[in-house]
Amino acid sequence: MTAHTSANVPLEYQTNQNQMNILGFWIFLGAEIVLFSTLFASYFVLEHNTAGGPVGHEIFILKDVLIETFLLLTSSFTCGLAIHAMRNNSKNGLMFWTIITLLFGLGFLYMEINEFIHYIHEGATIQTSGFTAAFFTLLGTHGAHVSFGIVWIALLLIQLAKRGITQVTARKFFIASLYWHFLDVVWIFIFTFVYLKGMVM
């Protein structure tokens, strides 16, 4: 497809370059799935090796984990609304929903950092056991991704304020939205196979 614009195609797909960038980002997300799978694999292998330290159900707090889950789920939803606004060519809508998304993301990080501090007070640091090492590595990698996403998307907002919705900024926001939704997908599996599993088994 050439660079000509077509009313039926969203702005972010309208150039060959944009299509290639979006495809490339999907391939990157495929690699991210594999990266997180190695961390999940390490966790599943090590989760019973608590070396006399605390086990999962002794330190996990369901209420806090649920709050984190709902914050991230909601931020994924508002991120979708941001792209919806972008496709209606509403710069203010895109700006508004993206800022809401970032606020939910920051709320999630605040809860997660407090959670980590709580674990450390309970005597579960990254050096305590195989379980805590794998746990903090998996959760920390996800949290680092969320932190990076917040900085990235905040920088995109500055570009949006300066340049408006163009083929380039639309593509960048769309790719960032894929990244943000992906982090929610990873969290669903952390929620189920780390927290719920840890509290049930």
Partner: peptide, 17 residues
Amino acid sequence: NIIYSIFLALVIVFGSI
């Protein structure tokens, strides 16, 4: 692409275990 990545993820997780 995503189906293949999920396949790799399953091999890594269940293979490691």
